[in-house]
Measured scan of single mutants.
Amino acid sequence: MKVTIEENEETGKFTIKVKTEDGEEKTIEIPKENLEEILAKLPPNVEII
Rank of each mutant, 00 (worst) to 15 (best):
residue 23 G to M: 02
residue 33 E to N: 07
residue 7 E to F: 15
residue 15 T to V: 14
residue 41 K to P: 01
residue 20 T to H: 07
residue 43 P to W: 14
residue 33 E to P: 03
residue 4 T to L: 08
residue 4 T to K: 03
residue 36 E to Y: 13
residue 43 P to Y: 12
residue 39 L to V: 03
residue 23 G to E: 03
residue 35 L to E: 00
residue 9 E to K: 14
residue 29 E to K: 04
residue 20 T to E: 04
residue 32 K to A: 10
residue 16 I to K: 00
residue 24 E to F: 11
residue 1 M to K: 03
residue 22 D to L: 07
residue 30 I to P: 00
residue 1 M to N: 04
residue 26 K to P: 01
residue 36 E to I: 09
residue 24 E to K: 11
residue 2 K to V: 14
residue 8 N to I: 04
residue 38 I to D: 00
residue 29 E to C: 12
residue 24 E to A: 08
residue 21 E to Q: 12
residue 1 M to F: 05
residue 17 K to M: 10
residue 7 E to Y: 15
residue 21 E to T: 10
residue 23 G to N: 03
residue 3 V to I: 12
residue 9 E to W: 12
residue 43 P to T: 06
residue 33 E to M: 06
residue 35 L to M: 05
residue 25 E to G: 02
residue 47 E to P: 04
residue 27 T to E: 06
residue 30 I to G: 03
residue 13 K to F: 12
residue 9 E to L: 12
residue 21 E to A: 13
residue 6 E to R: 05
residue 2 K to W: 13
residue 4 T to S: 07
residue 11 T to W: 02
residue 23 G to T: 02
residue 49 I to G: 03
residue 43 P to L: 10
residue 40 A to S: 12
residue 36 E to W: 15
residue 23 G to I: 01
residue 37 E to Q: 11
residue 36 E to A: 13
residue 6 E to T: 13
residue 47 E to N: 05
residue 27 T to Q: 06
residue 8 N to Q: 04
residue 47 E to F: 04
residue 4 T to G: 01
residue 3 V to M: 03
residue 18 V to R: 00
residue 46 V to N: 02
residue 6 E to V: 12
residue 23 G to L: 02
residue 39 L to P: 00
residue 13 K to H: 13
residue 37 E to I: 08
residue 15 T to Q: 09
residue 6 E to M: 11
residue 2 K to P: 02
residue 3 V to R: 00
residue 6 E to Y: 14
residue 13 K to G: 15
residue 44 P to Q: 08
residue 18 V to H: 01
residue 42 L to T: 01
residue 19 K to Y: 14
residue 28 I to Y: 15
residue 46 V to I: 10
residue 12 G to D: 07
residue 24 E to G: 08
residue 43 P to I: 07
residue 1 M to P: 08
residue 49 I to L: 08
residue 33 E to S: 08
residue 15 T to L: 12
residue 3 V to Y: 04
residue 15 T to Y: 07
residue 8 N to V: 03
residue 48 I to K: 03
residue 45 N to C: 12
residue 37 E to T: 07
residue 36 E to C: 15
residue 8 N to A: 04
residue 4 T to N: 03
residue 14 F to G: 13
residue 1 M to V: 11
residue 3 V to E: 01
residue 34 N to F: 14
residue 42 L to H: 01
residue 33 E to D: 08
residue 8 N to G: 04
residue 13 K to Q: 12
residue 44 P to F: 11
residue 11 T to L: 05
residue 25 E to W: 14
residue 48 I to N: 02
residue 45 N to G: 13
residue 16 I to W: 00
residue 38 I to Q: 04
residue 9 E to I: 12
residue 31 P to K: 09
residue 39 L to I: 06
residue 13 K to I: 14
residue 3 V to C: 11
residue 30 I to V: 13
residue 29 E to S: 08
residue 26 K to F: 15
residue 46 V to G: 03
residue 18 V to A: 01
residue 34 N to R: 14
residue 31 P to E: 14
residue 34 N to S: 12
residue 35 L to N: 00
residue 8 N to R: 02
residue 6 E to K: 05
residue 21 E to V: 12
residue 38 I to E: 11
residue 8 N to P: 01
residue 48 I to A: 02
residue 7 E to W: 15
residue 46 V to T: 11
residue 49 I to M: 08
residue 36 E to G: 09
residue 44 P to M: 10
residue 18 V to F: 15
residue 25 E to D: 05
residue 36 E to H: 11
residue 45 N to I: 05
residue 5 I to Y: 04
residue 28 I to M: 10
residue 29 E to D: 05
residue 22 D to A: 07
residue 24 E to H: 10
residue 31 P to Y: 11
